[in-house]
Design a protein around this nucleic acid. Sequence first.
RNA 1: GGGUGCUUAGCUCAGCGGUAGAGCACCGCCCUUACAAGGCGAUGGUCGUAGGUUCGAUCCCUACAGCACCCACCA
Length: 935
Amino acid sequence: MDKSFEPRQIESKWYARWEASGDFQPSGHGEPYCILLPPPNVTGTLHMGHAFQQTVMDMLIRYQRMRGLNTLWQVGTDHAGIATQKIVENQLAAAGQTRHDLSREAFVERVWQWKEESGSTITNQMRRLGVAADWSRERFTMDEGLSSAVRKVFVEWFRAGLIYRGNRLVNWDPALGTAVSDLEVNNVERDGHLWSIRYYTVDNSDSVVVATTRPETMLGDVAVAVHPEDERYAHLVGKMLRLPLSNREIPVIADDYVDREFGTGFVKITPAHDFNDYAIGQRHNLAPINIFTLDAKVNENAPEQYRGLDRFEARKRVLADLETEGLLVETKPHKLQVPVSQRSDAVIEPMLTDQWFVDLTSDHGRKAITEPALDAVRSGEIKFVPENWSTTYTQWLENIQDWCISRQLWWGHRIPAWYDEAGNIFVGENEADARAHAAVPPVGALRQDEDVLDTWFSSALWPFSTLGWPADGPVKNERGEVVADWQADKIFLPSAVLVTGFDIIFFWVARMVMATKYFTGQVPFREVYINAIVRDAEGQKMSKSKGNTLDPLDLIDGIELEPLVEKSTKSLLIPQVREKVEKRIRKDYPAGIPAIGTDALRFTFAALASYSRTINFDIKRAEGYKAFCNKLWNAARFVLMNVENGAIAAAGTPPATEAERWILTRLKQTLGDVEQHFLTYRFDLLAQELYEFVWNEYCDWFLELSKPALNGDDAAAAASTRRTLLVVLETVLRALHPIVPFITEEIWQSVAPLLGLTEAALLRRPWPKAGDIAADEAATAEVEWFKNVLSGIRRIRSEMNIAPGKTIPLLLADGDAADRARAAKFAAQIAFLARVDAPQWIDAGVDEPAAAAAVVGSMRVLIPLAGLIDVGAEKTRLGKEIGRIEGEIRKCEGKLGNANFVANAPAEVVAQERQRIADWGTQLSALREQLLKLG
RNA sequence: GGGUGCUUAGCUCAGCGGUAGAGCACCGCCCUUACAAGGCGAUGGUCGUAGGUUCGAUCCCUACAGCACCCACCA
């Protein structure tokens, strides 16, 4: 093995071999265990969130694979309608074109081309992470198989009366020219104004003052509303008002939606551009007046002078005109929630358009789709981890709206609906099917609906569409390879656990439950592990506009300062932001980002994966775990160097030394805990457990303890120690493999032959079970004793400034028979590791030299002063220790002196307290005796 | 307005009813042949505040404060 750990070399070597070996595909035996990859955008690149999430999935898959389960990690990519279409549109824009300059077919063809060119970027990046995913079954949400699933679901839901088309007020993104769902709209608080405007009655005898944040919408007003019980204005209800600027007559109506306390108590009603007003309009039978075109300019329903103006321009004009007419009563600053499109940042305009919806709210829709999805979680059939996310899920479904599934885009699954010349709708998997199911004979030619489906519609089918549904037989990809076969593959439904972010519980998780329940009768997964959101070291959300994103590949490979600055600032358009980001990067990463390797990155993710909902990614922490990898590497080097040239005890030989029995006992405990942490998804505790075992037990103590054994005269002990060194290493490599696959594989390949192991790869080894290892509690006590003696001596050496290389004498006093036996047993180890001469016992009553002391139980461990030690300093040291122990004893006495404690606390707690006070007492008297001896 | 979290060492976080822990940072001594990406040792916390339950509270309950996030139609 190389002298130091070089992640780059190791990583480049293994992935291709693993993938080619077929070990990432289902083994075909054992209990099925499936994980669905949340399909990333096909044109996307790997970000920290992906890397974190995928590390979690990979740990689970590798673990279960080693446990002998029939594992499938189903991977694939999502066509990501809007995002992908926008990328290609931007390319066109750079050439001064829009998609409308191309035909629809040509545009879509161009998007496919782009997908072919860049679609494998993210999957190749995933490979760098080492994911044990089954690439032979990779799917794309727009491939033929998945598209046929989409068509079938649409048609079946339509025929079941669960999908309908209607002219409804929807969230319209005027920049993208499409409807978007409620979920794709963010409400952003902005500084605006509240304007008060006077409307006169038609006879000019009276007037009302309405308050609005959007004065331009008054062009579409159809009424003014007051609260039915508002006595101030009761006399106005039913009167007609003259709408300023438009000169239309509109009624004053009473509706209890109005809040009497807010504004003036009058609300203008614009049903075509406000969701509340729409509802009020319906209640009062008022026809909405749409005043905007689809790109949010004033249309022909408004007075001539405003037509063609953008809505924000129109606002200015309206205000100016009102001012002129003396109708603008008041203007005051006002904070308001503005609906903004997630995709384009454009302000959403509620717009009346024809759209397709999935019915989730009528009795029929609730019974067929919504309720089963709620029941799946309420009944515990699906469990969230952490558990409280089920509240989020449940509450959303309880207040759900119908799902608007049509999008006015070109890239996506075209809606399988056709219209005849009379406007009748025909739905079917294709035109012929639509005709065949026609309720009325079509009039003239059929033309297909122009719209495509919401991207999440196809994602909702992912749990079963990827397994081959609805085809009866094998499904092939475009290269003719079989990627799924529903009859055989439905064993992977339900999948075991879905690992995903809370931000798509509504978008994706809930909708998968709805669709999967409806079409397969099964839940899509048994558990949903909601992973934390990765933020930067300061807890800020990572975003390109803040320039604080980290590219997982930059952490793996490292990046120089200048390229990092360039990369982080290139998409920042505002110079001030750019400057700020550059400054921060130069400060945070003066030497760029060091290469930490995939394993260290993965270990970091594991170590950060507690149940907390955000994790702050600190590169310092990652560097620490790279050090851990290096430690493991060097420990392996030590073992190999010491094992290769000596006899290794045969398998089954009982361990010869206390140290071996102790490390095996600790290994057993560690494995038991690791098992538990896998069950509860506590990867942080799991990582910590293994970290501590490797570093603080195996390296710090066992490797050190093995040195005297390896170099000693006892050949049997040496051979046995060699075996144990190897066995523990090999076992711990197996336990670590799900977290750090590359380094463990690399080391394991060298270790395996020495143990006669014949598997081709570490992933094929069985998961190490605690139950297979024998515990020896007595050995633990022995080694703990030894560690106490050694720590005592080291403390003296350090605090008394005794040169580390200097061999010094060691005396032992008092103690009992057990201490004598142990001292004899560990004599060589003590001498070697503490750099002391062979320990000498001092008999009671014999004069002893002045010495510095440590106390282990009732035994005093003495380093004679003889010019080495400052008596004053030693007295101070002892005094301090005595003070500390007296404090502990006082605490114990306090408890035991409390009659209520003794009466009420469990017996073992009281006994433990008595034991403690006795132990402290023993130490205290030894220390006091020592202080006396120093005079 | 409804909901969900968080507040523990300088920083990032575990612990969650019975002796306050880790990583990183900091301090001292060491290039001791696995490892200076290292070794040995030391320092550092009245566990947000106030009550309550309990023999005992960082942990459970209540209130308060601060900080996040999600959902929602106040013009």
